[in-house]
Amino acid sequence: MTGTEPVLSTRALNRATLDRQLLLRRSPMSALAAVEHLVGLQAQEVKPPYYALAARLEGFTPEELSGPLGDRAAVRMVTMRSTIHLHTADDSLTLRPLVQPARDREINYFRKGLVGVDLDRLAGIARELVEAEPRTMKQLREALSAEWPDADPQSLAVAARCTLPLVQVTPRGMWGRSAQVSLTTAEHWLDRPSGPAASADATVLRYLAAFGPASVKDMQTWAGMTRMRAAFERLRPQLLTFRDENGVELFDLPDAPRPDPDTPAPPRFLPEFDNLLLSHADRTRVVPPANRGRTWQANTVYCPFLVDGFLAGVWRILGDALVIEPFGELGRAQRADVTEEAARTLQVMHPQESYDIRFGTVIP
């Protein structure tokens, strides 16, 4: 860094990120194209990916995502940050191998429970089990414990999840359907082998297209990986560099959108765990310092909403109402815009149901 790079303000970073996240204006792209562009959606629970796309796409319906899941054009599996993501089938076969080093490190945390366990043999047995028929984690723990009765059952299951590219089979993840988590391998579910791992360089470019401008630490936070500096350095000649207001070096694609910081940003209702709030080491581009940590309490995570592009409160459907809890005072126009966006969210996601919209308390 030379110290002469242009400085991007927090608002400039906010607007650039919102634009790439399809949150500055709704996109006409398909659900599957959006999942690919966003390099997957956080999917710890069933509903969040649907709400994530409802906030981002024009004309979206839940069936537009359930369809690809049912057709096996999209899958749910552990990838970034060791969390469940919903990916296109093609991405699942290349991104999962990319993050394998992180999964190997994860196994190390469970070594005490894996004394005497040959991980290659465990992977082979686990693969045979889940490819014979999809298995729940409980079934996998019990079967592996029969092979290694002295090992910790939970550690055995974690090792299987970390060594194999396990996907959640449908109907799990489909809108309006209910099913426990059952697992098989991506190769078996998709009837094709895993491709070679996506290159670090190509993944950096995709990350910047969806989350940039960003620092090396930002990208590592999103991926749950380390040692990505070398990829950024290889790409430096074809990237632009900036600094944030704290002097941190940021990288970006030359032709990526960087809107005027004063570009209007309409309210948006997001699901819990939305990647917008989880994919940067420095989250101030979306989360004001005063609101840091306010979307969760104990083990409960609440759905955030944005006003003027920044985290402004939380929301939740409670009984017969969508309840909105702002973190600060909303002006009359802002309150009206937030209410209108809440009504749109309900119309898209629950067109056959009737809910009130009210401002109140979401977090006890």
Results as ranks from 00 to 15, higher is better:
G3E: 07
G3T: 10
T4H: 14
E5K: 05
P6C: 10
P6Y: 09
L8F: 12
T10F: 01
R11Q: 15
A12S: 15
L18W: 13
L18N: 09
R20D: 02
L22H: 13
R25Y: 08
R25C: 03
S30H: 00
A33L: 04
V35K: 02
E36F: 09
E36L: 01
E36K: 09
H37M: 02
H37R: 14
Q44C: 12
E45K: 08
E45S: 15
P48H: 10
P49Y: 06
P49E: 01
Y50N: 02
A52Y: 07
R56G: 13
L57Y: 12
L57P: 14
T61F: 13
E64K: 05
A73W: 07
A73M: 04
A74N: 04
A74L: 05
M77V: 14
M77Y: 12
M80G: 08
S82M: 09
R96V: 08
R96S: 05
P97R: 03
P101N: 10
P101Y: 11
F110I: 03
R111E: 14
R111D: 10
G113N: 11
V117M: 10
D118M: 03
D118G: 02
D120C: 00
A123K: 02
G124Y: 02
G124D: 14
I125H: 09
I125S: 04
V130D: 01
M137E: 11
L144Q: 02
A146Q: 14
P149A: 02
C162V: 10
L166M: 10
L166I: 07
R172P: 06
M174N: 01
A179H: 04
T184W: 04
T185I: 09
W189D: 10
L190W: 07
A197Y: 00
A198L: 12
T203G: 01
L205N: 10
S215L: 07
V216T: 11
V216Q: 00
T221V: 12
R227Y: 14
R227Q: 09
F232E: 11
L235V: 08
L235T: 08
P237V: 08
L239Q: 08
L239Y: 10
D244V: 13
N246C: 13
L250K: 06
D252F: 13
L253I: 13
A256N: 04
P257C: 09
P261A: 15
P266L: 02
L270W: 06
P271V: 08
F273R: 00
L276C: 00
L277Q: 03
S279V: 09
H280E: 00
H280A: 12
A281M: 05
R283N: 04
T284R: 10
V287E: 09
P288C: 04
N291V: 02
R294G: 09
T295N: 01
W296D: 04
T300A: 12
G309C: 00
G309E: 00
L311Y: 06
L311E: 01
L318N: 08
L318P: 03
G319N: 01
D320F: 11
I324T: 12
P326K: 03
A333R: 14
Q334D: 14
V338T: 11
E340Y: 03
A343G: 14
R344T: 03
L346S: 15
Q347N: 06
E353L: 14
S354E: 11
D356N: 13
F359I: 15
V362G: 06
